[in-house]
């Protein structure tokens, strides 16, 4: 059970969060409005081939049991050590 530091609420138990998977960078939404093979492949790559490294992984967690914000962390999948990447943004 991880201890995740929420930028708004401080260190909180994993059970307050739900997992959002690896942080993905979606292909640019507005740049390529035409449906091309490339756009489809880009999306396919991003959606289905998410990273699964043995080591640091940037991922997002939803703090539903607290501030209801998404938190981005870097978790080392080898030993579960966590470093916070950036402050969550209130929205």
């Amino acid at each position: 059970m991880l201890l995740i530091t929420c930028p708004h609420c401080g260190p909180r138990d994993e059970s307050e969060f739900s997992y959002g998977g690896a942080r993905r960078i979606w292909p640019d939404h507005d740049a390529n409005p035409d449906q091309t093979e490339t756009a489809m492949l880009d999306w396919h790559q991003t959606l289905y081939l998410s990273p699964n490294p043995s080591g640091p992984l940037t991922e997002i967690w939803y703090h539903g049991g607290g501030c209801e914000c998404w938190v981005e962390i870097i978790r080392n999948t080898k030993d579960h050590s966590i470093s916070n990447r950036q402050k969550g943004r209130a929205s």
Partner: peptide, 22 residues
């Protein structure tokens, strides 16, 4: 969907000026 909208606003497009309130 609430979670999903929050993710869109906070993670995917943080540059957009938008505030969500349930």
């Amino acid at each position: 969907v609430w979670q999903y909208l929050k993710k869109a606003a906070m993670v995917d497009w943080p540059e957009l000026d938008v505030t969500l309130t349930s």
